[in-house]
Nucleic acid binder design. Structure first.
Lengths: 237, 237
DNA sequence: CATAATGCTAAACGATCGTTCAACCTCCGC
DNA sequence: GCGGAGGTTGAACGATCGTTTAGCATTATG
């Protein structure tokens, strides 16, 4: 009896069944387009009962948000050893475990609710930990702004899910299909390994351009001034 | 008399004024949350006139979509010389020119309308041209799947705009503010230059893992088999 | 057994929405 | 000057929505 991420709708409390129906419909059509009557019908109850249990549609949404955020926070990873493929395996495990909720979570990140904010902050924090470890053990490159790097990497991580439709159209199959994930993995990893630019000409030029119009950065002596210049690029100029 | 991207609402046709009001409100609150009455009020007309000019709210949305897509397609770049900073300058010029429409365009990319599809395809196509040129002149690294790379880079380009709220929260200021753009530029460019991973250990391991479970890839002789292994990384294994 | 509480239904209310309609005004061609 | 066409208004219609309410079972409690 292993725990499924989506239990059969029959052995649930009526309250939980309404919540599951709401999450499904909110994920499919969004909050505004989903009516209380549609939720009630999917849950097999009357519209009045939805109000009886949750008070209002907005409160129902908040409860769904919090339920999913809590579920996501307390998820347990596959405890793969700290090998190289751990990160990817965890990421794939996450999207496999939360497959029915991907659309809901994506909408959360976009609709400006508190749950979406907490979710994104969680992603950024976890990414930050991963990057800190990677830099510590030498497997990752540092950045001139590690907070910003963490935010960007987290953003790039959720971007394929948030823009699932467009990316799926471009791929010819749904992003969460195994074939699509397989096809995406290598190019992304190549990008994260080799970078896009063959040399640092663009980086150097931009760095100089920014410094030229910098609003008083050189006046602060405490800050680090020369940015990180590791890696083996350097054909520019 | 330079052309502003947003003309004063007074010297416009009533039809155009309704369209401008719709774009503004759709961008702020989305299509579902914006009522015809609100559009009419913002345009200074009666709700009936909106229907008289556009037939229905859905038709009005389609016209707004097509108007913006057409405007975006026919935009002219700043014709910066083919130097290194051209790409960034064009990108910054775009978001500066379309600043009032960023939210609307972002919603288009997400709401599954035809206009959003055309917009994303346009981004991917332009990115593909940029990458083709970069690879041709040696300034960019090739990928094992150049189509996929183009899609990913395009996706990563619009991601900060689509997730404007979350990124803005993380930055402490709006993404389109000069300070935010300034702060984002270098870390992104570093990521695109040096990559995130310091060596190709993760890439090699994933490549092998994918090949082990590959559904009949080695049986096709026509395909290229060994992926690109340029760049100067290679400390792995 | 009586009673209160709980889970639940069906109907209705009030608000809002997209849309329609009849009428009015204005301007232009004849 | 006259008539018609198009721009415009404001009211009203019908549908849908979130929510409320009254009532009905069922169950637990004294």
């Amino acid at each position: 009896m292993n725990m499924r991420s989506v239990p059969s709708p029959d052995d649930l409390t009526t309250r939980a069944r309404i919540r599951e129906a709401s999450i499904a419909l909110f994920g499919e059509g969004g909050f505004a387009h989903t009516s209380v009557r549609a939720i009630a019908e999917r849950a097999g109850v009357s519209p009045g009962l939805v109000m009886h249990h949750f008070g209002s549609k907005a409160a129902l949404r908040i409860e769904c948000d919090e339920y999913l955020v809590e579920t996501f926070v307390s998820r347990k990873s596959d405890v793969a050893g700290p090998g190289a493929a751990q990160t990817i395996r965890e990421w794939l495990g996450d999207i496999d475990q939360f497959r029915p909720f991907v659309d809901y979570l994506s909408r959360m990140l976009l609709d400006g609710t508190e749950g979406g904010d907490r979710l994104f902050d969680l992603f950024v924090a976890e990414t930050r930990v991963m990057i800190d470890r990677g830099i510590a053990d030498g497997s990752m490159n540092d950045s001139s702004d590690r907070d910003m790097l963490s935010t960007i990497v987290a953003l790039y991580g959720v971007a394929p899910l948030v823009m699932r439709r467009q990316l799926g159209r471009s791929l010819g199959s749904d992003v969460l299909d195994a074939s699509a994930l397989r096809r995406m993995t290598l190019p992304i990893l190549e990008l994260y390994t080799n970078g896009l630019y063959a040399d640092d000409a663009m980086l150097v030029a931009t760095r100089e351009a920014l410094a030229a119009t910098d609003p008083g950065a050189r006046s602060r002596p405490g800050e680090y001034d020369d940015t990180v210049t590791d890696s083996t690029k350097g054909a520019g100029r």
